[in-house]
Design a protein around this nucleic acid. Sequence first.
DNA 1: CGGCATCCTGGAGGATACTG
DNA 2: CAGTATCCTCCAGGATGCCG
Lengths: 127, 127
Amino acid sequence: MPDTAPAPPSPLGIAVPHRELLDQLFDKWSPQVLELLCDSPLRFSELRRSMPAVTAKSLTATLRRLERNGIVERLIVSSRPVAVEYRITPLGKTLREPIDVLLEWIGTHMAGVESARARFDREEVTG
Amino acid sequence: MPDTAPAPPSPLGIAVPHRELLDQLFDKWSPQVLELLCDSPLRFSELRRSMPAVTAKSLTATLRRLERNGIVERLIVSSRPVAVEYRITPLGKTLREPIDVLLEWIGTHMAGVESARARFDREEVTG
DNA sequence: CGGCATCCTGGAGGATACTG
DNA sequence: CAGTATCCTCCAGGATGCCG
């Protein structure tokens, strides 16, 4: 089994596929979808109800990308009326840890970031 | 340890400032800049040399955003000729952990993602 | 050397309407 | 219900040129 990449965690600038994946994981709606599906499988319309700001087109695109990356899976539950269920895959579940670590960082340091912003903006105006 | 739903640290969809920060931390060049500055402070031109693909304008914008968020700091080392040094802040250093966790996830699961992609693309064509 | 100012383009994502 | 089909907008980021 080519279980590749044992340790060195940082070909950040070079690794184009890594960038692409990163972009998809942190695109506009994926994090929220992941969060919702983490709790339980949901149907398309249930996702829409939970995300009032997203359009059908964008949600579809988001789900397709996640599905393509193996993060989410799409199951047709019944036809007429069509019912489709989205659920997180085992691979997708493993994403929770890194995402939660990131969210914890934000939770811990957001205040610091915001005061830095305030200082920066103030000095910009003041000179 | 909890068997289900350990801790919900996740106002992901709602928290707009979180999104904004997330977008800036994972924009096109910030991760690479962070990685480079993590090792040692660098001057603008040194960063450019290390990042052949970035334009001056984009690098400047990236650094300004990072500076505004308190992740990086900008010091004028000398004038005539102008020399400016960028270095990571203590706040910025704390970002390494979440980023490394993410990179490790990618390192570990990229193969799985790619095989999922291959399967998806194949099935799309086939049927 | 370390930038701005300007112009331009690609592609994500919204609005709206339609369909199997 | 779960999408597709168009059209349109916005803006990150590239290209180029100038400047203190």
